[in-house]
């Protein structure tokens, strides 16, 4: 899917023009809203209050991008985003690789059933798990002041654990890593066993390095998804501002941006939440394309 695909159909010049017109129009629609946000972040309060409001900022307020960090808890949110996202990514990679390895390279009773379970579990939409998962964390025995029956305290609520634990496994990731692990030659593993290497060592030093491409792709995928995750994080941190991540913090602080004069700061915060991810993504795009095509179309 790389490079330039030669025009397959002997279409006329009109068709070629139409093609690029369509692509350009679409691209404008994709980019224009981001530009609108960027310009908004640069407006002065006076420009916003003018009648009619001034669209092109005449005196761009670059300082707004600094104010996002000095006047809003953006540093705290960024710290939380980094802690939560890297932990989730590390956990999901480890659990996916381990389980994928077991499913691909071992014969054991129930192996087929286990694989079917992993495939089936992917089909359950998240909405059905939200309510019970919230209360399982709330009434988790012996956590956060709870006694053995799960009452008395607040469980895992208002802790990082509540943000991380329900995402410590991804069924899609297990399945993906299983597919990659299938390509690891069994003779290589057996040879290491004969040489007396332990199972954990075989996994980390032989199997894992061989599936590095899949591992990296899954890692980028998971990181991006959870960096942008909003629904669950918002549900468990509504009353815990210290744990909010960047997008959730911006959303839950919306009450502070009702006045027209404060909206430039809000748009600057939104811009700050978007641009670093875009730059990172553009740098890693190649891995991402590979992951999407590997997971998507073969279904």
């Amino acid at each position: 899917m790389s490079g330039i695909v030669k025009s397959r159909t002997p279409g006329g010049r009109a068709l070629t023009v139409l093609k690029y017109v369509l692509l350009t129009l679409g691209a404008i629609v994709m980019v224009l809203p981001f530009l609108d946000m960027f310009l908004g972040a640069l407006r002065t309060p006076a420009e916003r209050l003018a009648s009619p409001p001034i669209y092109w900022p005449r005196d761009p307020q670059w300082i707004n991008f600094v104010r996002v960090f000095t006047e809003l808890p953006m540093l705290r949110w960024t710290f939380n985003s980094i802690v939560v996202t890297t932990t989730i990514t590390a956990l999901q990679l480890l659990t996916s690789a381990m389980a994928g390895y077991a499913l691909a390279k071992f014969r054991f009773a129930g192996a087929n059933k286990a694989l079917q379970f992993v495939i089936g579990a992917q089909m359950f939409p998240f909405f059905i798990l939200i309510i019970p998962t919230f209360f399982i964390l709330r009434y988790f025995p012996l956590a956060g002041g709870n006694d053995i029956t799960g009452t008395g305290g607040s469980g895992f609520l208002n802790t990082y654990t509540a943000l991380i634990l329900p995402f410590s496994v991804t069924w899609y990731g297990v399945f993906l890593m299983r597919q990659f692990m299938m390509s690891v030659p069994g003779e290589l593993l057996d040879a290491a066993r004969i040489d007396g290497a332990g199972e954990a060592r075989i996994f980390f030093t032989i199997a894992l390095p061989l599936v590095m491409p899949g591992f990296v792709t899954l890692g980028i995928f998971v990181f991006l998804y959870h960096w942008n995750e909003v629904l669950w994080t918002m549900t468990v941190t509504r009353t815990a501002p210290d744990l909010q991540t960047i997008p959730v913090g911006i959303y839950l602080l919306r009450g502070a941006f009702v006045e027209e004069t404060t909206k430039s700061l809000q748009q600057a915060a939104v811009a700050v939440s978007v641009f670093p991810v875009m730059i990172l993504f553009l740098a890693l795009q190649r891995f991402y394309v590979r992951g999407l095509t590997a997971g998507g179309v073969k279904g």
Partner: peptide, 23 residues
């Protein structure tokens, strides 16, 4: 083209909402 069309995909949904509330 791919980079341009994918920009919204790497944008968190809160940013998407607040970009469009203004648009």
């Amino acid at each position: 083209w791919r980079s341009l069309y994918w920009l919204p995909m790497v944008t968190n949904v809160v940013a998407v909402a607040y970009i469009w509330i203004f648009v």
